[in-house]
Simulated scan of single mutants.
Amino acid sequence: MLLHELLQGKRLVLASKSPRRRELLKGLDVEFEIWDTNHDDEEPFLANLPLADVPVYLAKQKATHLADRLDDSTILITCDTIVICCNQILGKPKDEADARRILSALSNKSHTVITGVCLKSKNSERVFDVATEVHFKRLSMEEIDYYISRYKPYDKAGAYGVQEWIGYVGVERIDGSYFNVMGLPIHTLHSQLISFINSLSK
């Protein structure tokens, strides 16, 4: 069965402030609701947690905060995306200077974008993550300053949106899911949702 058929009689909910994630989920031709959450902002995590495990950990935390709102028909999607470069997490920039620092760190290097996703129903949960390698050319300070002043990427992990100007002029190569870099690995989410819904009926 197609995903929209499997969702008959169920409520699909995306808990995210991100307009990019909403746009991508719409692309699956399914109806869904939006729950605003105050937990899209960067949250603390255990200091000894491996960097690659952080997105799934945070996605699960977001789902836990909303668990008491779930009923028997609801399937909740929560996500978290991080950028790792030189064994460090580059989060959302605090201001213009921080955005400049982050983009300078990404210049002429490859970095990893990891999105963790949690699917949660009232009595079941599934988590997964997807990693994508992104390769930036050497960015000039003129390019960095233009992008920051024009696009103000303060709500984006790694201080950039691949779908924006900086992606067109700066990204040399992407190994893996392009949509994952936007914040939602939609191909994997589609297959995981089908599998998750089918498992609920067993």
Rank of each mutant, 00 (worst) to 15 (best):
M1A: 06
E5V: 02
L6F: 00
G9N: 10
K17T: 14
S18P: 04
S18Y: 05
R21F: 01
L24Y: 06
L25M: 05
K26M: 09
G27W: 11
G27A: 04
I34R: 10
W35N: 07
T37Q: 10
N38G: 13
D41T: 14
E42W: 05
E42F: 11
P44H: 09
L46G: 15
N48I: 11
L49N: 10
L49K: 04
P50E: 02
P50C: 07
A52M: 15
V54C: 09
V54M: 06
P55F: 01
V56T: 04
Y57I: 09
Y57H: 05
Y57M: 05
K60L: 03
A63Y: 02
L66K: 02
D68M: 13
R69F: 15
R69A: 12
L76C: 05
D80L: 13
T81S: 09
V83I: 11
N87M: 08
Q88R: 12
I89S: 10
G91E: 13
K92A: 08
K94D: 12
A97M: 15
D98K: 08
D98H: 11
D98R: 06
R100W: 11
R100I: 15
R101E: 14
R101H: 12
I102S: 04
L103E: 07
S104F: 15
S107W: 07
N108E: 10
T112V: 12
G116Q: 08
G116I: 04
L119C: 10
K120E: 12
K122D: 11
K122A: 15
K122P: 05
N123L: 14
E125I: 08
V127G: 08
D129Q: 12
V130K: 07
V130T: 09
E133W: 07
L139D: 02
L139G: 02
M141T: 10
E143R: 01
I148K: 02
Y151A: 04
Y154A: 07
Y154V: 05
K156Q: 10
K156R: 06
A157S: 13
A157D: 07
Y160R: 05
Y160D: 04
Y160V: 02
G161I: 09
W165G: 10
G167H: 04
V169Y: 05
G170E: 09
S177V: 05
F179W: 12
F179C: 14
F179Y: 13
N180V: 04
V181D: 01
V181N: 02
V181S: 10
L184M: 08
T188Y: 06
H190P: 03
Q192Y: 01
Q192F: 00
L193D: 00
L193Q: 00
I194R: 00
S195D: 05
F196C: 00
F196Q: 00
I197F: 00
N198C: 06
N198E: 08
S199G: 03
S199H: 03
S199M: 03
S199C: 02
S201G: 12
